[in-house]
Design a protein around this nucleic acid. Structure first.
Lengths: 241, 241
DNA sequence: TAAATAGTGTCTTTTAGACACTATCGC
DNA sequence: GCGATAGTGTCTAAAAGACACTATTTA
């Protein structure tokens, strides 16, 4: 084994290498639902099914850079909150050849989501519903705007489910929620985003207290316009000290 | 671009492929400190520096399977809590060739850690201290048992730092702490593990209340032996409903 | 003034920290 | 009984939920 060991560290090129891709979960909140942007596959395999936008990682390209490049190429988005999610590498996840994919979670404010749908007409918004906790056939359901279930390609259902779970786990105690809102927003919009991701309602006074006490919100003094009722104050996200 | 697109999905083999490895952070608590098991590199590059045990992913091998195989081959451990941590893929992280590594976190109870040190004499226990939050030269310090700093190979300092951060983030609200304890343990041992990972002390009554209220602990009725004082009750981890 | 939503005051409930106290073992 | 650590009772402080109330805008 010492010899094998030596060869392994001395000449990695001797080993057959897999292809590596990045796949992006473009996530936002639309009409009160967590939503991801999907592409319908035109070619075999899984033609007709819905897939995450993705692409191969260049041989001299950093993983984050590849994700950023794909984000621009497939959705026309120049910058967004982007974080690595998980790496999926089951041997037969792609029937063509061994492909290991590094999944990324991209969080889009509603305006950016709308802009992406316009700039990249192939993208399609799918609202997401996690399946019950037990072992189901599919861990997540993706619905088209008219509530048709969209069959998902490859293991992309698992990726979407993990993305939503990750977001749920983080939104309570971290600042990711702000990545789903435009620069100026009201406390109600912030609460709506939290409720959509968590899938539960929240207590209004407690929510406001929590957010304000954490020092994440800078009041702007400005207010909403075009409401038919009392306009709410607009806030801006302020990084903590 | 539609043409490129087509070629990409039709013939992934046309793209130059990176090597993919798994690297394991074998983590436990030793003498009240978070500790990882490292190997001293014998060959170029980074000869003499300390590295995580790792190995190449087989072309038809699942990532988790590769991690499990390396765990057994390099540490003689047949089973342990194992979870994927993060994928590191900076283009020059290895000077020989492009190597993307999927890092895994392996949690070892103290007896398993001692057994691994015995079964695999090349492994060396290093106690870990996270550096201050700001931009430092190194995000983590690994100290030998006699408190000598161990220089780390490749980007393994980043991997170790992320592993400890991940564990810190999870230990308060999840059940990972039990993966660092033997099957039977006392509440004091459980608290010691939590304190070591968090790097802070905890309030004893509050800690006991929290743990007992969550229903994670099954009393065994048995007690410690070989103490020179009142022996504590032994508990067992019980999966939640 | 009516409708609608923004925003607040306050009571209760829950949870965590502080700290002192009692309990039980070996010696 | 002494030393040492296990384990608990109880007060206080902080945070979260419930709920009703006031405030401010358009129409």
């Amino acid at each position: 084994m010492a010899e094998v060991e030596f060869l392994q560290s001395y000449d990695p090129a001797a080993y057959e290498r897999p292809s590596v891709t990045v796949d992006l979960v473009l996530m936002g909140v639309r009409d009160g639902n967590p939503t991801a942007l999907l592409l319908q596959r035109q070619q075999h395999p899984h033609a007709g099914r819905w897939a995450l936008p993705g692409g191969f990682v260049g041989i001299d390209e950093d993983l984050d850079d590849a994700a950023t490049r794909v984000l621009r190429a497939k959705a026309g988005i120049a910058s967004a909150h982007l974080e690595q999610l998980y790496t999926f590498g089951a041997p037969n996840r792609d029937p063509r050849t061994r492909i290991i994919t590094v999944a990324y979670l991209v969080l889009l404010p509603e305006p950016a989501l709308a802009a992406a749908l316009k700039a990249a007409p192939a993208l399609f918004p799918a609202s997401l519903m996690l399946a019950g906790s037990s072992e189901e056939e599919s861990p997540i359901t993706a619905l088209s705007p008219d509530s048709e279930p969209l069959p998902l390609a490859f293991d992309h259902g698992n990726i979407l489910a993990l993305a939503l779970q990750r977001l749920r786990g983080k939104i309570d105690y971290s600042e990711v929620g702000f990545a789903l809102l435009p620069e100026l927003f009201t406390l109600r919009q912030l609460q709506d985003v939290h409720e959509a991701i968590r899938g539960t309602t929240l207590n209004k006074p407690a929510f406001r207290r929590r957010m304000l006490d954490r020092g994440w919100l800078a009041p702007t003094g400005a207010r909403e316009t075009d409401t038919s009722h009392r306009p709410a104050e607009l806030f801006r996200y302020r990084k903590p000290l």
